[in-house]
Amino acid sequence: MGGSNRQLGDLEELVLLALLRLGDDAYGGSIRQELAERAGREVSISTVYVTLMRLEEKGLVRSWMGEPSGERGGKAKRHFAARPEGVEALESVRAVRERMWEGLGEGDVHVG
């Protein structure tokens, strides 16, 4: 994997985090809800899927089809989970952030 693939967009980062939080229960609908409830980001299903697909392309996420169920109009779920590369990417983002925050006290953060 090239280094550029490890660059995460803002939404990609949030979706990956949602995958980690949701564990086995991660699929389009639940990810959308997690983003709405925890991150306060109202996004459409299509946005969630486009992001997931980009992450799959980058090799950070894998997915598989579940069994069809009686709910959801008899439609099966597609489950998603972060690959180890995904977790690595998240950690590197976090590391960058933490380095940037290092040494900044409460009083240093102000506007204007």
């Binding site: 699929y27 389009g28 609908g29 299509s46 089809m65 109009g73 439609k75 779920k77 597609r78």
Partner: peptide
């Protein structure tokens, strides 16, 4: 395809 099916299912579920 399966992706479409999954998306339609997600929509259906949240609609409900």
């Amino acid at each position: 395809g399966s992706r479409t099916e999954a998306m339609l299912g997600d929509l259906e579920e949240e609609f409900a």
